[in-house]
Design a binder for these strands. Sequence first.
DNA 1: TCTGGGGTCCTAGGACCC
DNA 2: TCTGGGGTCCTAGGACCC
Length: 438
Amino acid sequence: MSFTPSAEIFALVDGNNFYVSCERVFNPRLEGRPVVVLSNNDGCVVARSNEARALDIGMGVPVFKVRDIIRKHKIVVLSSNYTLYGDMSQRMMGVIGQFSPRQEIYSIDESFVDLAGFGQRDLRAYGQEIRQRVRAWVGIPTCVGIATTKTLAKLANRCAKKRPEYEGVCDWSRLHSAQLEHLLSTFPAGDVWGIGHRWGGRLLEMGIRSARDLAMADLALLRSRFGVVLERTARELRGISCHGLEVTVADRKQIVSSRSFGQVTTALEDLQEAVTQYTCRAAEKLRRQAGVCATLQVFLQTNAYKTTEPQYHPVATVKLTTPTDDSLRLTKAALSGLGRVYRQGFRYIKAGVMFTEILPTTVQQLELFGDSASPASTSTLPDSRARLMVAMDRVNRRAGPGTLHLASGGIRNAWAMKRERMTPAYTTRWEELPVAQA
DNA sequence: TCTGGGGTCCTAGGACCC
DNA sequence: TCTGGGGTCCTAGGACCC
């Protein structure tokens, strides 16, 4: 195996137990205690403090399966507060961005930065600077992994997390082949970025156990059995960079809005309310990226875990006569799709709307059999409807999501999601600002 | 009783065309 | 007996990520 020296250097900075850390910033009493944050509907565990991990709370487990452990160890359980986490993320990314001219925001809690131009600087010390500033200015603890490819940086980051002696920063960018090889041999292949459950199992069957095994594997064989994606991963482990930094945020190619219900429903009226609200949320995202939607899908789901109940998972595809970003027209289209696939007698647990064909507003196409004066998009042809959308977005941004909504969204919302242990929106609503006490 | 939501990319196979 | 070959487009499904 030959590791190729690369001109590129990536640092991956990510928040430790990010959602839990966000909660701790505003409630220091959570410090040192086992804490978990749940998914929407209070369904699964999606974030765990180190103390909760130590108690064997798995990532993604349904909360009812660990109820006993939670009770026994007095684990603090919180509903997820995405408004808070999104805002904390923005602050954290802003600080990290000060450390390099080129930054990729990879996820809500992870950011790659380009350190290639930093020459002879001590990158470990630089990583520590990043950690300290984020901790001081935002309150979030982080770890930093530095290497010549993104895949190696991910692994270095994991190393920094796992082994306290590194004090939160691992710099692999200047290692010799032999040193790197040794480090890779200590990680299971399944821990490598891009290797999931399925592929991990298949690799094991082939005798590829460690990250080092994967790096040394025959590239043509990997390609023929798994495809080009895994081949690239193996190259990256060898130090050949295949994934560059993606500095600009690409427009979404699809926009999904869906939720499980707080309780099952059989009523068309409930589904109409939900579909209306989901469509409006998706339309807001669409307008934010100045797009118009040409095709959407509406889907329904019964509870697949209840194998004794009749199952029904229909999808309706609706083509718009003219691409649009108008919530009213999109909702009308979505509701017509819903009407096509709704069947009585099923117990529905989830509904969703997906915009699958999204175009930039600059692409205009006149309606073939429509009112040719009616605008396809609010962004290019301002009329009263467009002004209404703009006003709605503004009100909902300032006063909170859903303040202004369509009547078909309903107000009863018997199906609405469960969030029984939600903390306040500390940073984004005046009335929920934390209060300092003397 | 109770099991998330939102994305991306790649591949295989079928339809269609010349 | 013997039934092409190559390109493009689209879709569904499978894998992955956080």
